[in-house]
């Protein structure tokens, strides 16, 4: 049951991820990416990380991708097609990446990876209480510093995105 679910989600994830980069229409790409995020959220639930799974949805699907969709609609982008002159480049990079990925996968497939045993296993780690405790005690400083990042990003996004006086285009 769980296995089938895993394989189904994985299949869907890979398929939609592929479609992200293969779709000609950026809107379709966005939608496929959202689908990928959903499957990943599914995986997180499988992995007992409920909090992250829902945060993944809220942040990625709910905020980031909306922003993407928003921008694409805003810019009214046309289809982006693969041109012949770059075909070799595409094929080449595809080949290289897949070879490398294949090698890594072959290596990883059989690699022994240490996992927790019964005695050390704690099914509650993915729960929000637990994560919150870790986040607000051990990682408080980086967490606070992320706010600097946000402030900076906010200022920057406003600064760059703002239309200047006299600019005609939207």
């Amino acid at each position: 049951m769980v296995q089938n679910l895993f394989y189904f989600l994985s299949f869907l994830a890979v398929l939609s991820a592929l479609m992200v980069i293969l779709s000609k229409n950026p809107i379709h790409s966005v939608l496929y990416l959202i689908l990928t995020f959903f499957t990943l959220s599914g995986h997180y639930i499988l992995l007992n990380a409920q909090f992250l799974s829902i945060v993944n949805l809220i942040v990625y699907a709910g905020a980031i991708m909306v922003l993407f969709l928003f921008t694409i609609m805003f810019l009214n982008l046309k289809d982006d097609s693969f041109t012949g002159s770059r075909l070799f480049f595409h094929l080449g990079s595809g080949l290289v990446v897949f070879t490398l990925a294949g090698l890594i996968i072959l290596k990883v497939a059989t690699a022994p990876i240490a996992v927790a045993d019964d005695a050390h296993f704690d099914s509650q780690i993915g729960m929000v209480e637990n994560l919150g405790k870790v986040l607000y005690s051990k990682f408080l400083v980086p967490f606070e510093l992320v706010s600097v990042l946000f402030l900076s990003a906010m200022v920057g996004a406003v600064m760059l995105g703002r239309r200047e006086k006299g600019e005609k285009n939207f």
């Binding site: 992995l47 990876i113 996992v115 780690i125 993915g126 994560l131 870790v134 986040l135 051990k138």
Partner: peptide, 18 residues
């Protein structure tokens, strides 16, 4: 998330949050 869950260590999930 995978490693975090399998290793039962919350740090990984916190990182994902970041």
């Amino acid at each position: 998330v995978t490693f975090s869950s399998y290793k039962s260590d919350p740090t990984g999930q916190v990182f994902v949050f970041f």
